[in-house]
Amino acid sequence: MEYIEIVKAIILGIVEGITEWIPISSTGHMILVDEFISLNMSEEFKEMFFVVIQLGAIMAVVLLYFQKLNPFSTKKSISEKRATFELWFKVFVAVIPAGIIGVLFDDKINEVFYNFQTVGITLVIYGVLFIIVENRNKNKKPRINHFPQLTYKTAIIIGVFQVLALIPGTSRSGATIIGAMLIGTSRNLAAEFTFFLAIPVMFGASLLKMLKFGFVFTGTEIIILVTGTIVALLVSVLSIKFLIGYIKKHNFKVFGYYRIVLGIIVILYFALVK
């Protein structure tokens, strides 16, 4: 086995760990990075790898928010346990729209939308939307600041916005955060709810890709997959902590500008260089 492939898996894990949680599109970055340090593996394995390393990102959320997400904690009162169960019910309600559309149209969506044009355009569009939403909310106080205030209706609306993230380049966290903020949710709550939504969504997407690929791996494939997943986990912990700390003092506009620049780079690179 060439050790260079492990190095590539480490780099891709770093990119995944950073971009999965910060709303700048992990897909857009993966496409660019893959152009320069592409894994020397089959296209089927690479497609599966890019999705399955998200399991590492999921574990970062579980580790950081275990106490908050654990309804069986002995440290919680009966009412707190009930509130945690209710939070999980809201999460599962919110993932239903994306779950249904994803299972039914996963192959079709990849066939139609997985290209540099779509990624570049969605990067720019949602970058502009971040700036517009932040300007719109500049002098408004959010009406939903705590999870008990987040109703099932609100959860479903956020879940509908998550469907948009099935289109490459949109950014799952970006779509749900924009949707949550549009209906009056605070930045911090929008970000945390997005993290929690990722657990069933990413687990389901990873399982689906592994089922399609088959559970038969070579030794090299296992090492690359495990390496990328572990690196994504470690980097995700740092990314989540950074984002939560950042949005306590700043807004999302900087990510909007970054997306616009990246989208233009993607479009120009693939249109003129490739």
Rank of each mutant, 00 (worst) to 15 (best):
S73T: 07
P23M: 00
Y152L: 13
G127I: 12
S173A: 14
V33A: 13
L238N: 01
S79Q: 14
I199L: 11
V62L: 14
F213V: 08
Y257M: 01
A60P: 15
K68M: 03
F105D: 07
I121R: 00
V128G: 06
L87N: 03
P142I: 06
I158N: 07
L164C: 13
E111C: 00
K90V: 06
F203C: 08
I58C: 02
L238K: 04
F203L: 15
L104Y: 13
Q149P: 04
L234P: 12
T19A: 11
A175E: 08
E111H: 11
L208N: 09
T19W: 04
L208H: 09
L243C: 05
F50M: 04
Y269F: 14
F89C: 06
Y114F: 15
M181S: 02
V231G: 09
L233Y: 15
F45M: 07
S42P: 10
T227W: 13
T229L: 10
E47Y: 13
G204A: 02
Y152S: 06
I24Q: 01
S26R: 01
M181N: 03
P142K: 07
H250M: 11
S236H: 11
I230K: 05
K248F: 07
L164Y: 08
I156E: 01
V61Q: 02
G263C: 02
L268S: 09
I247P: 15
I247N: 06
V133T: 13
L234R: 10
G56F: 01
V61C: 07
T118I: 12
V237F: 06
T19E: 02
I14N: 08
V231D: 04
F215Q: 02
N135I: 10
K138L: 12
A175P: 10
